[in-house]
Design a binder for these strands. Structure first.
Lengths: 203, 203
DNA sequence: CAGTTCGCTCAACGAGTGTAGAGCAATCTT
DNA sequence: AAGATTGCTCTACACTCGTTGAGCGAACTG
């Protein structure tokens, strides 16, 4: 019927058996989770603190209290264990290719929300761009070290660019032509291209 | 010295010999040019009409009068002759590869501001995303038709994804590892990878 | 040269944003 | 059980944004 006017959910009545610290932690997690999802879907600028708070079932001011500012919330939401270079412990080129395809989110069920949030905002939000550059350059370094050979860094940069491109088109733009193809087929088609960038040939 | 308090540049004193229609057109062009540059640099949401107007040396209200709304301005700024599929009149695979590398902005001196504006905003602005999908799918169709072979559409989609990825990383993120490599070298390194996606091999 | 047109600016509104401070009520302490 | 602590909400401020309508003055028309 008529919607209950939110019975003054004092943040207390629900979840009866939790301590104050536990409830605080639970709120923080809920906010972070909601923030990641919204940042991943709409990017930094279109995501409002009010929307995050509403999605988390919480007052906007609480978000400020926990994370200091919208930027602080974004930083926390995006900062997760920085994925080590996809080729950290790869022994041969085939393992490098496997690692790259894995980091694409083609295998498994997509990339984590935090990664999507960073990617979604990296073209419009300066801090996200800086973070993206940092992460990508680090991965390129690892990749270049693993591949060696002439122009290793340029090759590695192109490999990461390809990864970014496929991730962007598939996960963020959701191109039908990509979504309509099974992920293992995409990986299979992509594999020779990645191999071609790893091979040393007389250019 | 102290800056002149803008001597009431009535839009008339300057450019003495132009007719009203000519001045109107000149204003429109200036606004569009400023808009393209700002949209390309900061994306849709961070670009304000006030900033565009200031960059064009014009009152914000004039922008509204010319383009109706911020969205209208963006649409006009981004709508340019849709680039025909990079492989429209390609005869063999090598010409397809050339066309792809060309549409990357690696050759010449980068992509036009209108393309950069669309790319910059395509992850955060729904209209830009729709436009990007439309353009990319069209190019994929043309590419798939030119390449034929098994799974042609998936291959074409991956080719466009690679193009997008390199363009994003090079033109928008400005990754040092890419900017530090001559563009012809990047093209040369990329070529075998693109070829690998065009070749039909038993997968 | 008088009257009209119109490109343009000025000033302002209303909505939405990030953010800060006061206060409540449930939990923790003694 | 009384007091101190604190997670949380309410209210509101200051600001910026897109957008609008009135009006000015130069360019056009006769």
């Amino acid at each position: 019927m008529t919607e209950q006017p939110a019975p003054r959910a004092e943040g207390a009545a629900e979840a009866p058996g939790l301590s104050r610290a536990q409830r605080r932690l639970r709120s923080e997690r809920r906010i972070l989770e909601a923030a990641r999802e919204l940042f991943a879907r709409q990017g930094f600028e279109r995501t409002t603190i009010r929307a995050v708070a509403a999605a988390a079932g919480v007052d906007p001011a609480l978000v400020m209290q926990h994370f200091g500012s919208k930027q602080g919330l974004f930083t926390q939401a995006v900062r997760v264990a920085v994925p080590e270079s996809p080729a950290a412990q790869a022994r041969d080129q085939e393992q490098v290719v496997d690692a790259l395809l894995g980091s694409l989110g083609l295998k498994l069920d997509g990339l984590p929300a935090s990664s999507l949030a960073m990617m979604r905002s990296m073209l419009t939000h300066p801090e996200a761009a800086a973070h993206a550059r940092e992460v990508l350059e680090a991965q390129i370094s690892g990749l270049a070290e693993a591949t060696a050979g002439p122009e290793a860094r340029a090759r590695a940069a192109l490999l990461m660019s390809i990864t970014v491109g496929v991730a962007v088109c598939h996960q963020l733009l959701a191109l039908d032509s990509l979504r309509g193809t099974p992920q293992d087929r995409l990986a299979a088609l992509l594999r020779p291209a990645l191999r071609a960038l790893l091979d040393e040939d007389p250019g």
